[in-house]
Amino acid sequence: MKQKFETLRSRCVPLPQDNIDTDQIIPARYLKETTRDEGFFGQHLFQDLRYDADGQPRPDFVLNDPRFSGQVLVAGRNFGSGSSREHAAWAIAGHGFRAVVASSFADIHKQNELNNFVLPVVVSEPFLKRLTALVLAHPETEVEISLPEQTITIVGQDDREHFDINAYKKHCFLNGLDDIDYLLTCRQLVEDWEARRDAKG
């Protein structure tokens, strides 16, 4: 069952790079599975950034840095560009992230996060810079994300931003509903549309 999302207070994992593509999030050679095993994909999240060719953790990569933890990934600009692979969203969710904060997202990946109850939070460049700097200097920094309010707040800093999400997806997140549940209720509308199309020839 999908996890409902209302508010989240968590420490942050900073990955301050622009244009992180989905090949970096999970390389193609891990896409051969036929089941939706988030645990498997999560183990390979950022595989080649995280591990060397021998499978040893790269100490300079943030997921291997014991100072940082939490359910919020703080990235850069144009997060998730490239391939449409939803495995990237499964890997992010499988690792335990429930929100990704960035100044922009690639369209397909953003939709994939939304369809997996990982909340993409688009913030301004200045807010992202402040948050990243603070997390890097003080890894214990927390953010509070309120979906009902559509706000992200740096806890203890009186620094808050509004973020956008369409009312439909917000409803889905708050209630743990997915698009297919909804579309199945619309079958008659589709058949009516097809009848109109066929009448037009």
Partner: peptide
């Protein structure tokens, strides 16, 4: 291009 949840959506509903 779409993700796999959306592939399922189109298979299930045509939309």
């Amino acid at each position: 291009g779409i993700g796999t949840s959306e592939v399922e959506m189109v298979l299930a509903s045509g939309c």
